[in-house]
Structures are given as structure tokens and as C-alpha cells.
């Protein structure tokens, strides 16, 4: 798909420069990581307002804790660990998106598309919403953000075998719910 943003790694010197007080470097980090952070948050919490708030909180916390960021550490898992925490907090507070889904309305994140594509996208979001949060989180980090299981373990604090099981279960649900629809198209 041509409009799919690449999951490129960031320049490892950027966090170090930001840690040293270079504001331009931190602004570049925000510029580079905001799209991926928003994508993850949007899929986790289900609405743009809460997602943007979670992402904003994340960058504020990252900025204030840069002094504790180890020079030999990798920035992306560290950021996603903070972001995942913010998303869990947001999920605990919100219920607006759930109401939208229950009443069959399309979340505002779905853009104008042809009907089959729109139906598919809507169904994907609906099935995603039915997944337990821990399975959805593991699935998104593995299959959308392309993280290694070792990094996901660092983000979530969960062991590798448990993570693999969460991802497998999420894939099983998606496969069962979506295979038929895909074949009908």
C-alpha cells in the first residue's frame, strides 16, 4: 500500500543529543516518532482525542525522564513502554468508542474508501475492539509496529512465551472472524 509509513529506526544519536539538552534533537524525535506513536495509541484506545492525549503525555514524560535514559539503550522500546502505560490508563477511563461500536457507527479514523474496502476496514476495527487489551497490545506491537519479541517483552514486562501466546490468540481470532469476509470479496 503506497501510503503505509515505513517503520524505520531512528538515528540513535538523536535521543542522546536530546538528553544533552538539544531541543532541536528532541523536536526531531517528536517529529519522527509521533506518527507511529499515534497509530499505536489510536488502535489501542479507539478514538483520536484520547490517543492524542496519550501521545502528548508520553512525550512530556519522555522529555522529563531523558536524564534517566541510558546511553546504550534503544529509544523506541523505551518510548513505547511509556506509551503503552498511557494507553492502558486511557483505556481504563474511556467508554465512548465502545458506545460507537455498539451502535454500529463507523469510527472517525476510517476515511473515505470504496465500499468493500470500507466494510473490510470497519470489520477489522470491530474485531480488534473485541480482543482483550493485552492481546491487542501484543498483536499491534508485533504485527503493526514490527517489533521483535524481545523488545515487546521490554515494553510490556511480560515473558516471551506468554507474549507469543497472546499474539497467536489474537491472530486466531482475526483469522476466524475475517477469513470468510476476505473470501467473499
Amino acid at each position: 500500500m503506497s501510503d503505509t509509513p515505513p517503520n524505520t529506526s531512528i538515528d540513535p544519536t538523536l535521543p542522546l543529543r536530546a538528553k544533552a539538552g538539544d531541543r532541536q534533537a528532541f523536536a526531531q524525535l517528536v517529529d519522527l516518532m509521533y506518527p507511529r506513536a499515534l497509530r499505536f495509541a489510536l488502535h489501542m484506545v479507539g478514538n483520536r482525542e484520547d490517543a492524542e492525549e496519550a501521545v502528548q503525555d508520553t512525550f512530556v514524560r519522555v522529555y522529563h525522564n531523558l536524564g534517566r535514559f541510558r546511553d546504550d539503550a534503544r529509544f523506541e522500546p523505551w518510548l513505547f513502554r511509556i506509551l503503552a502505560n498511557r494507553c492502558r490508563t486511557a483505556l481504563g477511563k474511556r467508554n465512548r468508542h465502545t458506545q460507537l461500536i455498539q451502535y454500529g457507527e463507523l469510527p472517525d479514523r476510517v476515511g473515505a474508501q470504496s465500499d468493500p474496502e470500507r466494510d473490510w476496514t470497519e470489520e477489522v476495527y470491530k474485531v480488534l475492539e473485541t480482543l482483550p487489551a493485552e492481546q491487542k497490545e501484543a498483536f499491534l506491537l508485533r504485527h503493526v509496529e514490527d517489533m521483535a519479541y524481545e523488545d515487546i517483552a521490554a515494553v510490556t514486562g511480560v515473558g516471551l512465551s506468554a507474549l507469543r501466546m497472546r499474539v497467536k490468540r489474537a491472530c486466531d481470532v482475526l483469522r476466524v472472524r475475517l477469513t470468510e469476509m476476505m473470501q467473499d470479496e
Binding site: M1, T4, L38, R109, C171, L178
Partner: peptide, 28 residues
């Protein structure tokens, strides 16, 4: 896996998750 592969492409589509430049500026 064709189903998971397509789900992945759907969820990575920028058209659905494009950041609002104002929100990025507000974050900074």
C-alpha cells in the same frame, strides 16, 4: 498469512492514522 497480512496493511494505512499537524505542534 494472507488474512493477517491484510489486517496489518489496513492497520498501518496512513490514511486512517495520519497525525494532525496542529496536534504535533501542541505536543511540543
Amino acid at each position: 498469512d494472507p488474512v493477517i497480512s491484510r489486517v496489518r496493511e489496513t492497520l498501518r494505512s496512513e490514511s486512517a492514522t495520519r497525525p494532525d499537524p496542529v496536534a504535533v505542534a501542541r505536543t511540543l
